[in-house]
Design a protein around this nucleic acid. Structure first.
Lengths: 229, 229
DNA sequence: AGGGTTATTGTTCATTGTACACCAAATAAT
DNA sequence: ATTATTTGGTGTACAATGAACAATAACCCT
């Protein structure tokens, strides 16, 4: 094989860190590999990129095949390309993360042969390939991003309570926040609309329900902000 | 050509946005392409990644071949992989940016056939491939990064004045800063050491020279900070 | 009716950000 | 030598933001 030919003995893939929030913890959607290498191990969902497919399209395809979801938040993080990261050849992978509302997620039975399931981010077992490293990098990026734009809302159902929102931020940022200060800050942004509805069926004082103001939300995503907590 | 084969009719490259600072403006090092496609156009320095070469190693190699510099600040930004971004085939590229002290830069005559030269970032002409887009993304990342860690120092000579430092931040962030507030903030970090030396040969009151405290610098790079200006 | 659980609300103090103007020290020009 | 020109260096008052902190309200369950 000539030098020039060997430039083309390579492929690229996408891997997608799909984050979800179950109301109290940040989760990631992992598949169990059904074939070697790393058969039986947990891994990030991913696939080779088709020859005529854009990278982002490939990431969207992986997401849709696994969850049936389209049009969700998706962001590239970076490329991982260590020479020996894939045992079968030179494969560099482009890492994406996406944010999904777990309630929208309908398991796709036949799409991937593999079983997909939610796992808590922290204290995670060893994953296939360099996927622990990829996951860690994506989490760092999410933590940074959530301070710059209100993307955390992508993980919540349309109606939510302030406590749910706070728990989301706490689980993303891995920190505890002061309840009163959090509320003061988030409400002062005029990003939330009070729905004048209450939780029902809870065995304690019911909380108000909010949704976010779509216009303000777009502004914040585009212009960014500094959300120090 | 079968579907499977066509997965391997692809290649990946690195492109390096090399930033420099001439004392008043942020610059980027561009080459003039000596061969098609885009012959004669300005482009980012880049190259295909060798089969047994890590991505970062490739970026370092491109930088060294062009400038003779090793061990300078280098950071991956993201991958660019639109299907038709390269007219000769499917080539995705991984973008890096690096920060160099222009005084250290010794032009490499024979290394690349192309001519390399510094260009001001703003009001840049049209570059080859999607390099305008890549450059723009790298600049955005630099702007974010410089607020989180003191990496701006990588662009300055070992001894510098506070005014030079301020002009660096102003040219990176494309904004004007208040002199007194800037000095108050930067000095309060205990990141700078007063060298008890003065500028010489300037036609005005000479400024004090500073260097940065290596220990503090490392701490800030690792732990990060919030540098709101 | 009372216990359990979570929701909601405001003030004080410390810290940080922001706006702003004058004198000092060097060279250059006359 | 005097003056002009240029950039360096410094402090204060006010506003805004961040941080710490605890008592009452509303629902369900028994």
């Amino acid at each position: 094989m000539s030098e020039v030919d060997s430039f083309f003995k390579s492929a690229f893939s996408v891997d997608n860190v799909i984050f979800g929030f179950d109301g109290s913890d940040l989760k990631v959607l992992l598949i169990q590999r059904g074939a070697p290498p790393f058969k039986g191990k947990l891994a990030l969902p991913g696939d080779l990129v088709y020859p005529n497919e854009n990278l982002e399209t490939a990431a969207e395809r992986v997401l849709e095949q696994l969850t049936g979801l389209r049009g969700v938040y998706l962001e590239q993080v970076k490329a991982f390309g260590a020479v020996n990261r894939h045992p079968l050849g030179r494969v560099i992978t482009i890492a994406y993360y996406s944010l999904v509302k777990t309630k929208d997620y309908t398991p796709m039975p036949a799409s991937f042969a593999q079983v997909a399931s939610w796992h808590t981010i922290h204290h995670l077992e060893e994953l296939a390939f360099d996927h622990n490293q990829i996951l860690h990098n994506c989490l760092l990026q999410l933590q940074q991003r959530v301070r710059m734009a209100p993307i955390g809302f992508e993980l919540l159902p349309p109606k939510f309570t302030l406590t749910e929102l706070q728990q989301l931020y706490e689980s993303i940022l891995e920190t505890e926040l002061d309840k009163r200060n959090f509320r003061k800050k988030i409400l002062s942004m005029n990003l939330l609309e009070d729905l004048n509805e209450m939780q029902a069926g809870v065995a304690h004082r019911p909380a108000k329900l909010y949704q976010f103001d779509q216009e303000r939300y777009k502004q914040f995503v585009e212009r960014g902000y500094s959300f120090d907590l």
